[in-house]
Design a protein around this nucleic acid. Structure first.
Lengths: 158, 158
DNA sequence: CAGAATTAGGACAAAAAGGTCTTGATATCT
DNA sequence: AGATATCAAGACCTTTTTGTCCTAATTCTG
């Protein structure tokens, strides 16, 4: 129903909302969210371009959330990576339905509207620290920023 | 958000709900719903296998709705072609979330649950003949069953 | 400034979804 | 029975999505 990309984007945003202020480099996010790092890189770039994250290069760089998590909705995240296409005009281009969707497409679009509303009402901030609930995505809070296992380059000649 | 296949399946079911009793051959459904006929064939087969349609071969054959449209929900159609995958266990396989989804995935699954409910409450029957609304999919009711334009075979040698 | 860490961008590969075509089975009609 | 209309099944192609990899640009540290 939701694409992988959306799922990954939401995971990354939830993680970064939790780590506010300290830039998190891609491999660390990838580990915490269990998303393939190389693909995550693409998703993160979309989130930067959507204005939800800032990318900071160089040592001690990484990604940092661009605004207060309380002001970012799940809808904002969705829009940044894969905008929902609401049904505005008849998908069959029938003349008589131009201004007035047929009951089927009205029903479908109503469902989309409901989804849109649900996600617009949920902020990243709300997901954090809900008592009685597990912490988002991660078994422990603020994992130490340490080097991950040094993966041997496959280019080991000389 | 919804796949093409789901959209096509819903169009076909809405059309056939409207034509109850008279078998409609694939090309006619394809024309009325503006779905590529060869692909529609696949979708129709899934709907037959899902028990929502009956296929009847031979002259004057076609597809016919298997049950009363009032008893078929949009959810049934969705399930037949592309079952929604609810989130039942932690997608990250975190031990501490096994029985208790984290707030992010709880939120996502709640949205899926809402969708599920919406579609379970809507039947094909309800879509038909809503007054003041355009007829589903088609500019006129019960189009005559006529031969479509004979498309010249591309195998015209000899 | 040299070196290392990190994002930015894009080429490329693999997998899934969407779409086409051909062949075979079955039903109807004369 | 023969001719024809139709679905059933599946091989095959195309496009989109997902995933990998390499190179360039930038920034930090000593």
């Amino acid at each position: 129903m939701f694409s992988q990309t959306v799922e990954y984007a939401l995971r990354a945003m939830a993680y970064l909302a939790d780590q506010a202020k300290v830039p998190q480099p891609n491999p660390l996010i990838a580990q915490a969210t269990k998303v393939p790092s190389a693909y995550l890189a693409k998703v993160l770039r979309q989130l930067v371009q959507g204005g939800l994250l800032n990318g900071q290069r160089g040592p001690n760089g990484g990604f940092i959330i661009a605004r207060d998590p309380g002001s970012i909705t799940l809808w904002d995240v969705l829009e940044a990576v894969e905008p929902m296409r609401r049904i505005k005009t008849c998908p069959l281009d029938l003349a008589s339905h131009l201004t007035n969707l047929c009951p089927l497409h009205r029903k479908i679009d109503d469902a989309l509207a409901l989804l849109e509303k649900t996600f617009k009402e949920a902020t990243l901030g709300e997901l954090l620290n809900q008592k009685g609930k597990p912490h988002p995505l991660c078994d422990f809070i603020n994992p130490p920023r340490i080097k991950l296992g040094v993966k041997p380059s496959r280019r080991t000649k000389i």
